[in-house]
Design a protein around this nucleic acid. Structure first.
Length: 974
RNA sequence: GCCGGAGUGGCGGAAUGGCAGACGCGCUGGAUUCAAAAUCCAGUGGGGGUAAACCCCGUGUGGGUUCGAGUCCCACCUCCGGUACCA
């Protein structure tokens, strides 16, 4: 019985922790160091936990258990991100209300997490689907709704940092005189247009198969991320959040954060800030009668006096460019097909062609647009615009390579210096004027060369780099960077342009046509005919939460009308105190909403007065360590930071950034698979002669014949290494594939944590996942690796427990004698290494250090109890169950969860004699033993006397001897 | 294409510019056993040499810096992840 019995021990200690509320975070203690460690909370899917979850959870658990033993107060909560599609789709199929399914899944997840022995404070658990939680999600939405962004506001936050731009209450929005004059309704509409949460009629990605509108982020290659269904673009009234206003703040805020450079750059790229200029090109008034060139002169002088207007007037096309220095090379303009000026600029002769082109563009899904990306298409409108810098008349085209959603939806085309414009100009024989001279030693890039074209008998390529201005009037000879600054200044002076910043980031499409999401706390005013007027009334704060109605049917309506539109009348309509009929907003919030602020709620989960008490927020925030999968590196983190910054601007939270340190755990792949290929008649085909193909069920074909090949799983003894690759043992010309794949049901390589715990125990699973490799690396699973760590725990057990006894008793080898110097040295080396490794999150090496300890102690006939006790403490964050059990067998009556973490003594680390390497000319030739504290002369002398070294020094002169005390000796000889 | 990251034994992976391959898996041999499981001990990068001593080669490729490079610099190759008409 006293063999290491994981199941018995683990159940015992999990019950103990539960009963004693061992990991409940108490009231915040002033002056005691705090640590807030958070896992990205899971979506409780019906499949239960997979082995990827415990990877991050174990890492945070180790950090927390370690921190508690160091005397810190630790906040380590867990909850559920439980709104989302799967529960709704299950409801559609079975009629089971999503709340029921969700609850069941949460129960499974909780059971599994407890089974793994994580030290969460379960008293703080909540789900985003709890009305008491989403009450505050709705409240935060109202904060966004009731605010606008003032880009000019300069202010100093509670963190003492100066910022420009701030969210302010909508009541403080300055109303232009014109609008004030138009009356109350106009003012309300104006406010609506400026809110951080606003409604917008926009082409959205409608997926009829899912019966919903999708965010750009939910679409991959023009198909839905979920289910791979086709997506088309249709116009719809949608909720948007004005995240673009926070573009700069979201970039600047990254600076002080302890995040990997790669995630920071991922976020920066996503935001995609670019600097350039907006420039107005004169097109004349709508029914221009006088000559365009003459009108242009008048316009120029008017502009010189009035300056550049905030909004473009009707007589100009406003463009955005990052290369204002190429203005002289603009030879045509392009509008996106959706641009509002297309109609008025299209002359009668071109109407038909333009209309046809627009139709085609509108029908194209994103997929088609990218598919046809190779070829440039477009139509001339028949109209011209005037280049403000040189008065040149240039034709205005429409083309779908210009997107309505970026910049101003219109561009000036400079074919000589932009690859896309070049392609278009070549296609439609438009003039190409070079205005930037590359440096003398310039070689065209691959992309540029690919576009090489013969024009007028001469081979020419576009040039998209920087250089010196030519054909640019007074600016000739200027360097690109200087020219940009200079011309931007000139444009402002002449009132025809200004410096501008653009973002790749778009405003956040914040509504979904789902049942299983947070309802919006918004009512729409209806007019006498029951039509939506565009004016809105928020639910008063005190009436929150707006709960979901009971529905009989969860099916999508099949139209973009959300399922909530079939809610009972009394949920959908009400008459306000002033007699206005109101209709409830029937969209719901996206799944991101709940995860945007859950980290705040954990600091104060039961507060009925506020989303989080300010004091609690100040005490616990920011999150000191946040660990989760890389799939959230962009969106979740960007969205949560955005909400947080708005709350910060409005004074609801006091720290500017929510997540101080972020770590992305790597993905765990399935076991490595060796795959061979065979034709139908059973002949082997080399993996180098096959390729993937959708044509046949096997998914692979032989390249030469195009015939399908079947795939065969091989055992490791059937293959051998050959160079970089593997081949069959029987035939070294037949290469086979060797790689690990993502775990998936389809591939059948999913590892179930329940199974692993059943077989090996939770401690083994925890240690194995940490031992696999660096936390952030992608790593393949290996069942035999689990045997290894399981053996290690068995060895630890036998260090202390007498297996042959009936009862769990201390082994006779464990004594109360004073530890030997050697045992102490081993212990203190281990303490030092493990402590430092935990701090670096280098958990795989921490475990290997403990293995070394175990191996060394196993050799000792008599083992000091004191030494073993300290070791058990070191092991406890990693394998808490076995550690608690051993701790109690060692004679302790209380949990070790709050025992002081062992401290190493530097003086005990030193060995008295060390073996140091001796090199000659940098090559290792021998090793000599010297006293650890030997000085340079002694070391050099010892090295020179070494037999082998003498041989290498014979007949040579020592030019130089490099001696590093305690480390090495190197002789440079001639 | 662009932006990140990574290339080290049969495998997962270690190495503040200072003994490459810690630790684990796998494999080989041995002990224990009637036998097995479990456990313990020894060996295990490649080549040469007598399975000794010892020597040569070796961290994707080519160059460089350095007394000394897996580690730093330059160029390139391959793989993985993200992204893509963003003006």
């Amino acid at each position: 019985m006293p063999r290491y019995d994981a199941k018995r021990i683990e159940t015992k200690w999990q019950t103990y922790w539960d009963q004693h509320e061992t990991f409940k975070t108490g009231e915040f203690v002033e002056g005691k160091e705090k640590l807030y460690v958070l896992d990205m909370f899971p979506y409780p899917s019906g499949d239960g936990l997979h082995v990827g979850h415990p990877e991050g959870y174990t890492a945070t658990d180790i950090v927390c258990r370690h921190a508690r033993m160091q005397g810190k107060q630790v906040l380590h909560p867990m909850g559920w991100d439980a709104f989302g599609l799967p529960a709704e789709q299950h409801a559609i199929k079975t009629g089971t209300p999503p709340r029921i399914t969700t609850q069941k899944n949460i129960d499974t997840f909780r059971r599994q997490l407890k089974m793994l022995g994580f030290s969460y404070d379960w008293s703080r658990e909540f789900s985003t689907t709890d009305p008491e939680y989403f009450r505050w999600t709705q409240w935060i939405f109202l904060q966004l709704f009731e605010s606008w962004f003032d880009p000019e506001n300069e202010w100093t936050g509670p963190d003492g940092k100066k910022r420009v731009g701030r969210a302010r209450p909508i009541s403080e929005l300055p109303i232009p005189e014109k609008i004030k004059f138009a009356g109350e309704e106009a003012i309300r509409h104006y406010q609506n247009r400026n809110r951080l949460a606003y409604q917008h009629e926009a082409p959205v990605n409608w997926c009829s198969a899912l019966g919903t509108v999708l965010a750009n982020e939910e679409i991959i290659d023009g198909k839905s991320e979920r289910g791979d269904h086709p997506v088309e673009r249709i116009p719809l009234r949608q909720w948007m959040l004005r995240i673009t206003k926070y573009g700069d703040r979201l970039i600047d805020g990254l600076e002080g954060l302890d995040w990997s450079e790669s995630i920071k750059s991922l976020q920066k790229n996503w935001i995609g800030r670019s600097e350039g200029a907006e420039v107005d090109f004169f097109i004349g008034s709508e029914n221009q009668t006088t000559d365009l060139d003459q009108a242009f002169e008048t316009w120029k002088s008017t502009r010189a006096a009035s300056g550049f207007s905030e909004e473009p007037e009707a007589d100009v096309l406003r463009i955005y460019t990052t290369r204002p220095d190429t203005l002289y090379g603009a030879t045509y303009m392009v509008l996106s097909p959706e641009h509002p000026f297309v109609d008025r600029l299209t002359i009668a002769d071109q109407k038909q062609a333009v209309e046809a082109y627009r139709q085609k563009a509108a029908l194209k899904s994103d997929l088609d647009r990218t598919d046809l990306a190779k070829e440039k298409t477009g139509v001339f409108t028949g109209s011209y615009a005037v280049n403000p810098v040189n008065g040149a008349r240039i034709p205005v085209w429409i083309a779908d390579y210009v997107l309505i959603s970026y910049g101003t939806g219109a561009i000036m085309a400079v074919p000589a210096h932009d690859l896309r414009d070049w392609e278009f100009a070549v296609e439609f024989s438009l003039p190409i004027i070079p205005v930037v001279q590359p440096a003398d030693n310039y070689e065209p890039s691959k992309d540029e060369l690919a576009l090489e074209t013969e024009i007028d008998g001469e081979k020419r390529t576009p040039f998209s780099g920087m250089g010196t201005a030519i054909h640019s009037g007074e600016f000739d000879g200027m360097k690109t960077a200087d020219f940009k600054k200079q011309i931007t200044a000139n444009l402002i002076e002449q009132g025809v342009g200004k410096g501008a910043v653009n973002y790749r980031l778009r405003d956040w499409l914040f509504s979904r046509q789902h049942f299983w999401g947070e309802p919006f706390p918004i009512w729409h005013e209806l007019d006498a005919e029951g039509k939506i007027t565009g004016l809105m009334r928020p639910d008063p704060e005190e009436s929150l939460p707006v709960e979901l109605p009971d529905l009989k049917e969860y099916k999508p309506t099949g139209t973009p009308e959300p399922p909530l539109s079939s809610a009972p009348e009394e949920w959908l309509y009400k008459t306000d105190s002033d007699g206005t009929r109101l209709y409830r907003e029937v969209n719901s919030m996206p799944q991101w909403a709940g995860s945007c602020w859950y980290y705040l709620r954990f600091a104060d989960p039961e507060n009925n007065e506020r989303f989080v008490d300010l004091r609690n927020e100040q005490n616990w925030l920011p999150v000191d360590l946040y660990i989760g999968g890389g799939e959230h590196a962009v969106l979740h983190l960007l969205y949560a930071r955005f909400w947080h910054q708005v709350l910060f601007d409005l004074g609801h939270v006091t720290c500017a950034e929510p997540f101080q340190k972020l770590v992305n755990q790597g993905m765990i792949l399935g076991d490595v698979e060796l795959t061979g290929f065979q034709t139908a008649d059973g002949t082997w085909v080399s993996s180098k002669a096959v390729e993937e193909s959708d044509e046949f069920d096997t998914g692979w074909i032989e390249k030469s014949s195009g015939k399908p090949v079947s795939i065969l799983s091989l055992e490791s003894d059937q293959v051998q290494k050959q160079g970089e690759d593997f081949t069959l043992v029987d035939d070294s010309t037949i290469y086979v594939n060797s790689r690990a794949y993502k775990m998936s049901k389809a591939r059948g390589n999913v590892v179930n944590p329940d199974f692993v715990v059943e077989q090996y125990g939770a401690d083994s699973l925890r240690i194995y996942e940490m031992f696999m490799g660096p936390l952030e690396a992608t790593k393949p699973w290996s069942m035999s690796g689990l045997d290894g760590v399981s053996r290690f725990l068995g060895r630890v057990w036998r260090l202390m427990i007498e297996e042959r006894d009936e009862e769990v008793t201390l082994s006779a080898a464990v004594t109360d004698d004073a530890p030997s110097e050697e045992q102490l040295r081993i212990l203190h080396k281990t303490i030092k290494a493990v402590t430092e490794d935990i701090e670096k999150l280098s958990l795989n090496t921490a475990i290997s250090r403990m293995m070394e300890f175990t191996n060394a102690m196993g050799q000792q006939k008599s083992r000091s109890k004191a030494v073993l006790s300290e070791f058990v403490l070191l092991l406890s964050p990693f394998a808490p169950h076995i550690a608690e059990e051993l701790w109690s067998v060692l004679g302790n009556t209380e949990s070790l969860a709050y025992q002081p973490w062992p401290i190493y003594d530097e003086s005990l680390l030193q060995e008295s004699i060390v073996e140091i390497p001796v090199q000659v000319n940098g090559k290792l030739r021998s090793k000599v033993s010297v006293a650890a504290d030997a000085d340079q002369a002694t070391m050099q002398q010892a090295a020179e006397q070494d037999e082998t070294v003498v041989k290498f020094l014979e007949g040579k002169t020592i030019v130089k001897a490099i001696v590093i005390p305690g480390r090495m000796v190197n002789f440079v000889v001639k």
